[in-house]
Every structure is written in structure tokens, then in C-alpha cells.
Design a protein around this nucleic acid. Structure first.
Length: 536
RNA sequence: GCGGAAGUAGCUCAAUUGGUAGAGCUCCAGCCUUCCAAGCUGGAGGUUGCGGGUUCGAGACCCGUCUUCCGCUCCA
């Protein structure tokens, strides 16, 4: 594509709106930032993607079942999961460099610097006392090797040094003071105090080097609302920031009632909410979005092989959409979240670059252990093979449905140069296309519309089919190209005589005649999800 | 939240130093009957994102505000 990525992305957005895939939320009221609605075609495409995921996970794996947990959950859920703490970041801006920092990170970095100083003191002392400066080869060479006894005799006692040296103790005290002060400030939700700590510590911005800070602001990344009709006894509850916790709290219910044996999985699709500081890039990062998650419960010690299994299986699923192998890649996380012992992303090349599409995480037994602790309920599995109980480990696959939608839409949209014309084509995988086929009478007379309607009414029970009799047939083809309809079926005068129709292909514009009664068997293998599922 | 750009009909865009808001496509009703957009006739559609100000007069100038895009920042 010759157009710039930025221009192309704008084209994707306007195409989405123009053909009824995606509208901005509450547009007549100037819209609501980072919230979008799916229109008549968008809802179809989204549903088809969701169905394909659901069938690939639940229907094709007899050890995976699906649930639909509520968005509202008991508030303690989010304490146990770590979201209440982890989702509350105090942020501060430097007015000169315009850079934003997490206030806690600034303070932690400052503490780390002091710790460095202590290490330097220790290092200095070590050299001094041991009489051996390993960094100075000259000195090393000039001395004979010490005997073991001698070494132990003059060996530097680091523990003792750390607990007695005045300078180290002074640094240590500083660190403790800062930490205590900071902890108290956070517990009291005292943001002025947090700011004051930064001022008192004379922390400077690494970029501008200035101490010109804004106030510290709290960004609560979870949406909260209140349950209970009377405000006095209202309980603050959160809109879930991830669907996974609905699976964890139901893990034992499902395991017992479904008589599930480890390894087994629980899948779920549903809305999640995150109050992003900056939500941007169309539907890539929205405040309200839909996740498709599967938590796979495994025997401790086997998690890495399942992690590898799902890493591979999920990439295969993405590749089956046929949008181009080169548009996907793995990205292994080096820095892991508090609950994970391995994590990677499957990234997709969006118009604005490679970005995270799906995450595969080995979450250990962190979540279930946390819920055991907070709920006081045992969340263990009795393994008959081992003849003992344990808390299972979890391997998670988590994909954003909206991101997936955007990946499909932006990869499928093409401007095709013809001889003296350009054609806008949405080359969606046929099984995901909103309309599987469109039925046209070549002209709007001579009984052609009636026959076309018959054919339409026949197909509509199995497929979402469009009917159009307006404008020239070429125009109608182009309209269907733009919304991704893979097949157009045109009824002409010959159809009245021999019961054949013209099938026209979206991607090649090729056309050929087939018998009317063959339409169903022609479409079925090409447009059904079954066809896609069989490639997995 | 900061900086930059933008917002005119469903879509793409015009409108001279401030002087009556326009075109093409789309849409609707007909004509024509055509297998790959752009044939003919007629019609609908806008309080120029919103609110204020300057002016005899604002789409244009000024202030505020909302939204979008780009960059910074963040991302379980």
C-alpha cells in the first residue's frame, strides 16, 4: 500500500464509520472519549470473531468449558487479586520536561540510590580490610597467595560492618525514614505528603533536571460504583478490570459440578473496564472493552509445558485467519507481573505498528492462593494419581476482542488499483464476514426480483445474506466488496430458463454459473466456521 | 494531563483582505435495463462541533469548551 500508515489508519476509521462497523459513542452529544459503539455490520463481525474463538476453545477441547460471570464482584475480589493496590498509581508531572512519572517510582528510585551508596561503602571497606584489591592486578601480583587460615582470619565481616558502620547506619536510617513516611502517606491517601516527600528529598526530573513538579494526582484505574439503593449503606463495588477473576472465584464450582479433571480450562468472554489515563488509537485502547480469556488449570510443575502449548496453539489460531503470517510475532516479557513466572504477547502489526494482541501468561498459583487466603475457603484439587491435594497452577490466554476486530479489519481493508479505477475491498475471512453472500436481480423487472427474493429467502435460514436491487449491478458488487461480502449471486434472464445463477467472487472478481440448488453446498464449506475450525 | 494539528450536508472537500454556505458522491422518487463505480429528470439534506466576544455584518478574527488524530506518559 502506497499510502502512509497514518493516512491508512484514518482510512480504516472512516471506513468503519461510513459502512456501519463502528460509531463513536453518544456521537450526537459530541461523543464520549475512548468509548465506541459497534454498528450493524460491526456487531456481526464482532460476533463472528467471538464465535470462532469460543468454538475453537470450548467446542474443540473437551476439557475446556465456558462460563459467563457477572461484571459486578464482591469488593474483596479485587483486594485479593492485587488490583486495588496495583491499580492506584500516584502520578506527578515535571512542568519543565512535561514528563509524567509515578510518584512512588520516583521515591523508590531515590531509595535505590541510597542503597547504592551503602553498597559502595561496603565495597570500599571490603578492599580496605581484606588488603586485597581484586580490581588492582598489580597489587594482587605483588603478594603471595594467602593461606585459607589467613584468609579467614582477615576476612571482612560484612554483616558486622553493615550493622556497625556509622555511615551505613545513617544511610539505612534515611531509607527507613523515607519508607515509613511514604507508607504512611499512601495509607492515609495523603497526596500532599507524597509531593512533600519528593520536595524534601530534592528529587529532580532525570530529563530536565528541575524540581518544578505538579501536585501528585491519584489515578484510580478501576471504575467504581455503588450497590444498594440507599446511599448510607451503599457499598463501593468495582466494574471488573479483567474477566479472569470471575473464573478464579468459580473455579471450584465448575470443577466439582462439571467433574473436571486436571488439566482443564474455563473460558469466558465479556466486558471489562479500565479507566486508562490516556485511551487512544480508536478501538485499540478503550475504557470499556471485551476480553476473551481462558484459564487453564494444571498440575504444579507442568505449567511450563502447557505455557508452551498454548503459546503455539494461540498463534496457530491467529494465523488461521489468513491475514498474513508476517503480521504476527511473539514478544516475551522480561519484566513479569507480580503473579507470573512466564509471560509473552502475540503481537499484531496494526497500521500504527506492532502492538499487543493476546497475552499468554503462566500465572502460577498466585490467584487461587490469594483467594484462599482472603476467602478462607480451600481452593484445592484432589489429584487421584498423586493421591494428594494441591492448588493448581494456571496458564492464561487473554485476547482483546476489540483489538482482534481491529486487526482483522485493518488487515483486510485494501485499495485495489484497476485499469482506470480503484476498488475498495474488505478481504475478510469469509467465515467472519457480516454477510456471507448478497443476492441481486440483474435488473428490476421481468420477474427477476421475485426469483432473487426466493433464493434470498431460501438462504437466509442458514446464512446472513444481503439483498440489493438498486443501481447497476457493478455498483452493487462494489458496495458488497467494501463491506467484505465474499460472494455475490446474480439472477438474470437465463436463470428463469435453466435455473442457474452467476456467482461472483469478491477477491478476484471472477464469475461463473452454478445451479441454484447447488448454492448451499457451494457456500457451506467456504463460509461456515466449520471450515475454519478444521484448519486448526 | 502537556504539546501540535483538525472539526463545514451521510461521505470527500470548496467558500478571495470578514459580505447571501456550495460542488461531487451518497440518499429518496421516477426514466433507462445494462454482469463490475461515475447515463437522464426531479427532490431531500447544514443554527459551519458547542458557548461567548469583537463587528453594521463571523464558516473565517479573539476567548472558553467538547471531540478526534499525532507525539510524550502509562499499560495486568
Amino acid at each position: 500500500m502506497s499510502v502512509k500508515p497514518e493516512e491508512f489508519f484514518k482510512h480504516v476509521i472512516s471506513h468503519s464509520k461510513e459502512y456501519g462497523f463502528i460509531f463513536q459513542s453518544s456521537e450526537i452529544y459530541d461523543g464520549l472519549s475512548a468509548v465506541y459503539d459497534y454498528g450493524q455490520l460491526g456487531a456481526e463481525l464482532k460476533k463472528n470473531i467471538r464465535d470462532y474463538w469460543w468454538k475453537a476453545m470450548v467446542q474443540l477441547h473437551e476439557n475446556i468449558v465456558g462460563i459467563d460471570a457477572a461484571i459486578f464482584m464482591h469488593p474483596t475480589t479485587w483486594k485479593a487479586s492485587g488490583h486495588v493496590d496495583a491499580f492506584n498509581d500516584p502520578l506527578i508531572d515535571n512542568k519543565d520536561s512535561k514528563k509524567r512519572y509515578r510518584a512512588d517510582v520516583l521515591i523508590e528510585d531515590h531509595v535505590a540510590k541510597i542503597e547504592d551508596k551503602i553498597e559502595k561503602e561496603v565495597e570500599k571497606a571490603r578492599k580496605k580490610y581484606s588488603g586485597i584489591d581484586s580490581s588492582n592486578p598489580k597489587e594482587k601480583d605483588s603478594k603471595r597467595l594467602l593461606t585459607k587460615e589467613e584468609v579467614s582470619y582477615i576476612k571482612f565481616d560484612e554483616q558486622l560492618f553493615r550493622s556497625t558502620n556509622a555511615r551505613v547506619l545513617e544511610y539505612q536510617k534515611k531509607i527507613e525514614d523515607i519508607n515509613n513516611r511514604f507508607k504512611t502517606a499512601l495509607n492515609d491517601n495523603n497526596l500532599e505528603e507524597v509531593k512533600q516527600i519528593i520536595v524534601d528529598l530534592e528529587i529532580v526530573c532525570p530529563i530536565s533536571g528541575s524540581r518544578n513538579w505538579t501536585e501528585v494526582r491519584q489515578f484510580n484505574l478501576m471504575f467504581s460504583t455503588s450497590m444498594g439503593s440507599v446511599s448510607e449503606d451503599a457499598n463501593t463495588i468495582y466494574l471488573r478490570p479483567e474477566t479472569a477473576q470471575g473464573i478464579f472465584v468459580n473455579y471450584l464450582n465448575v470443577q466439582k459440578t462439571g467433574r473436571m479433571k486436571i488439566p482443564f480450562g474455563i473460558a469466558q468472554t465479556g466486558k471489562a473496564f479500565r479507566n486508562e489515563i490516556v485511551a487512544r488509537q480508536f478501538i485499540f485502547r478503550m475504557r470499556e472493552f471485551e476480553q476473551m480469556e481462558m484459564q487453564f488449570f494444571v498440575k504444579p510443575g507442568t505449567e511450563m509445558q502447557w505455557y508452551e502449548y498454548w503459546k503455539e496453539a494461540r498463534l496457530k489460531w491467529h494465523l488461521s485467519l489468513g491475514l498474513g503470517k508476517e503480521k504476527y510475532r511473539y514478544h516475551d516479557h522480561l519484566k513479569l507481573a507480580h503473579y507470573a513466572n512466564a509471560a509473552c504477547d502475540i503481537e499484531h502489526e496494526f497500521p500504527f505498528g506492532f502492538k499487543e494482541l493476546e497475552g499468554i501468561h503462566s500465572r502460577t498459583d498466585f490467584d487461587l492462593k490469594q483467594h484462599e487466603q482472603f476467602s478462607g475457603k480451600k481452593l484445592q484439587y484432589f489429584d487421584p494419581e498423586e493421591n494428594k491435594s494441591y492448588v493448581p497452577y494456571v496458564v492464561e490466554t487473554s485476547v482483546g476482542l476489540d483489538r482482534l476486530f481491529l486487526s482483522v479489519l485493518s488487515s483486510a481493508l485494501k485499495e485495489e488499483k484497476l485499469e482506470n479505477d480503484t476498488r475498495t475491498v474488505l478481504s475478510l475471512p469469509p467465515a467472519l464476514a457480516p454477510y456471507k453472500a448478497a443476492v441481486f436481480p440483474l435488473v428490476k423487472k421481468d420477474g427477476l426480483p421475485e426469483l432473487a427474493e426466493n433464493i434470498f429467502n431460501n438462504l437466509k435460514f442458514d446464512y446472513n445474506v444481503a439483498y440489493d436491487e438498486k443501481d447497476t449491478v457493478g455498483k452493487r458488487y462494489r458496495r458488497q466488496d467494501a463491506i467484505g461480502t465474499p460472494y455475490c449471486i446474480t439472477i438474470d434472464h437465463q436463470s428463469l430458463e435453466d435455473n442457474t445463477v452467476t456467482v461472483r467472487l469478491r477477491d478476484t472478481m471472477q464469475q461463473f454459473r452454478i445451479k441454484t440448488e447447488e448454492l448451499h453446498s457451494f457456500l457451506e464449506p467456504r463460509v461456515s466456521l466449520t471450515g475454519l475450525l478444521k484448519t486448526l
